[in-house]
Amino acid sequence: MAADYYQALGLELTRGFWLSLKIIGPSAVGGFLIGLVTGAVRGAGHPRFLARLLDGYVALFRGTALLVQIFIVYYGLPNLAQALNLPPFWKALLSLSPYQASVLVFALCSGAYHSEYIRGAVLSIGRGQFQAARALGFTRFQTFAHIVLPQALRRAWPGCGNEIIYLIKYSSLAFVVSARELTGAAQSVSNTYFRFTETFLVAGLYYLALVTLATWLFQRLEKAWARP
């Protein structure tokens, strides 16, 4: 019995851990990219219409609970497609697997937070450098791409790293839509063997290891990109 438990624990949690990684990876990258574009446009306030639209997106995703967002995307969207009697193509498109729904929601939610770090950093770059670039004949876009963003990213990076570390942990919410990632696997193993403490302790160690690795990596990057 004990041997069975340890075998299940090792196997299931490792499998769950891989699924967690497969959720976290694209969510982190996608979220950062969404946040980069959103934060840059909102920081620049240009194009104005797009900036206002993205303000709305950020307000929505920062203003609602992540759990609610997952439920709406996973259960709500297919229902909506059904209720509106959309063509089959749209019904299929809006019926996401637990994995797809989790990655989509995590990326969108994370992007909303990233965008705030990046917007703040963009605003902190002195107006003078913007003027100097324009004076040299840079277009507005070139000024942004070559002068403002490289500096803003350096300033935003510690905050963005923090957000990714949050993401690692809120990825556990994927288990509510039945994705058997690390937390989901731990739940199922502990339910089968009634051994909650050890199981979640091991799951916690997996998260701790991943966060430690991420922290180390982000610090390396921060140092590599540092300028005097």
Partner: peptide, 14 residues
């Protein structure tokens, strides 16, 4: 075609 020099230099810090 016109060069501009500013009071506080405005070099690109990065």
């Amino acid at each position: 075609q016109i060069g501009m020099i500013f009071q506080d230099f405005n070099l690109f810090d990065h």
